[in-house]
Amino acid sequence: MQYLLLIYTNEKAMLSAPKEAASQMMGAYAAYTEAMKNSGAWLASNRLRPTTEATTVRNPDGRKSVLNGPFAETKEQLAGFYLIEAPDLDGALSWAARCPGAAHGSIEVRPVWTV
């Protein structure tokens, strides 16, 4: 069976962590991912860029709205995701607006952290 692990951390704390703690954490992540791959359980994983680089798209009835920042509606829950390749943010926003989910909820657009 497939499961999604969603990793939530305090961004500000992560960004202001001392160098040593941060590199220790990076080492721990790498080891964890390695272990998961070795076990055969790993299918995919990605680190995301922070919420300051997120954009949220809603498109009810064709009235597009694009807001800076991550999703923030308490009445909505994460229902799915698409990992896409786009030339730039504008291209990604274009796909977000087309997602049928945009008409009924919100699509948060988050760039993936490239190593």
């Binding site: 998961m36 790993w42 995301l48």
Partner: peptide, 17 residues
């Protein structure tokens, strides 16, 4: 806290996940 990343895995059941 904010979403920082994700892992997609294939395992037998919720316990393993």
């Amino acid at each position: 806290e904010q979403l920082a990343g994700y892992f997609l895995l294939e395992v037998p059941d919720m316990e393993a996940a």
